[in-house]
Simulated scan of single mutants.
Amino acid sequence: MSLLGPIISIEDDEDDQYLIEQTINQLNIPNELRFFSNGETALHYLQTTTEQPFLILCDVNMPIMNGLELRHLINQSEYLREKSIPFIYLTTAANAQLVREAYDATVQGFYKKASDYAGMRHQIKLIIDYWQACLHPNREF
């Protein structure tokens, strides 16, 4: 994890992409924000980039490849596992079984999207603040 690396948002809903972008900008987070509309395009980026992303915010329900499938493929890749990119679900889909399945796949967080902008801002601020302060295997000490 690089504190200055890009924030990867895997989100197929354009309205949610807009809210996430506005929130990141309003919080004055300097990291570049990269959007992918499905897990397949995000996986291709993650497999081919030399960048060290700061974190991944991922929806669960998406076309082509959903967030759970993406997480499983990341876990199967030694290259991506070694990058140790924090993977956080930010999704409208939330139930006990889905949360269990996500944590079984070693996800680092699961948030049900807030229903308003203030709530979304609070969630993203919590996530960013935590990972900026957290020690990490790929972070320089």
Results as ranks from 00 to 15, higher is better:
Thr50Gln: 15
Phe36Gly: 00
Glu32Phe: 03
Leu57His: 13
Cys58Asn: 02
Gln52Leu: 12
Asn38His: 09
Ser37Ile: 05
Phe54Lys: 02
Phe36Tyr: 05
Leu33Met: 07
Ser37Glu: 09
Met62Gln: 11
Gln47Val: 01
Leu33Phe: 04
Thr48Lys: 15
Asn61Lys: 11
Asn61Cys: 09
Leu43Gln: 06
Gln47Trp: 04
Tyr45Arg: 06
Asp59Lys: 05
Ile64Pro: 02
Leu46Pro: 06
Thr48Glu: 14
Gly39His: 07
His44Trp: 06
Ile64Arg: 12
Val60Phe: 13
Ala42Gln: 03
Asp59Ala: 08
Met65Cys: 07
Glu32Ala: 11
Phe35Lys: 04
Gly39Lys: 02
Leu43Phe: 13
Ile56Gln: 07
Gln47Ile: 00
Phe54Arg: 00
Leu46Met: 14
Leu55Glu: 03
Thr50Leu: 15
Ser37Gln: 04
Pro30Thr: 13
Glu40Gly: 01
Leu57Ala: 14
Val60Thr: 03
Phe36Arg: 00
Leu43Thr: 11
Ile64Asn: 15
Glu51Gln: 15
Ser37Pro: 01
Cys58Asp: 02
Leu43Asn: 07
Ile64Glu: 11
Ile64Gly: 05
Val60Gln: 11
Asp59Val: 08
Glu32His: 09
Val60Asn: 05
Phe36Gln: 02
Phe35Thr: 02
Arg34Asp: 01
Glu51Trp: 10
Asp59His: 07
Cys58Gly: 05
Ile56Ser: 02
Leu46Trp: 12
Leu57Cys: 08
Ile64Val: 15
Ile56Phe: 00
His44Val: 10
Met65Arg: 10
Ile64Phe: 15
Thr49Trp: 11
Ala42Trp: 00
Leu46Asn: 05
Leu55Gly: 00
Glu32Tyr: 06
Met62Tyr: 03
Glu40Arg: 09
Thr41Val: 09
Arg34Tyr: 08
Leu46Ser: 14
Leu33Cys: 08
Pro53Asp: 08
Thr49Cys: 12
Gly39Tyr: 01
Leu46Tyr: 11
Met62Leu: 13
Met65Phe: 14
Pro30Gln: 11
Asp59Met: 08
Gly39Trp: 00
Pro53Glu: 07
Gln52Pro: 04
Thr41Ser: 10
Thr41Trp: 04
Val60His: 05
Ala42Ile: 06
Phe35Trp: 00
Leu55Thr: 00
Thr48Ala: 12
Glu51Cys: 12
Asn38Leu: 06
Phe36His: 05
Gln47Arg: 09
Asp59Gly: 11
Ile64Asp: 10
Phe36Cys: 00
Ser37Met: 01
Gln52Asp: 15
Leu55Met: 09
Met65Gly: 07
Gly39Pro: 01
Leu55Ile: 03
Tyr45Thr: 12
Gln52Arg: 13
Asn38Gly: 04
Pro53Cys: 06
Arg34Ala: 03
Val60Asp: 02
Leu46Phe: 06
Cys58Val: 04
Thr50Phe: 05
Cys58His: 02
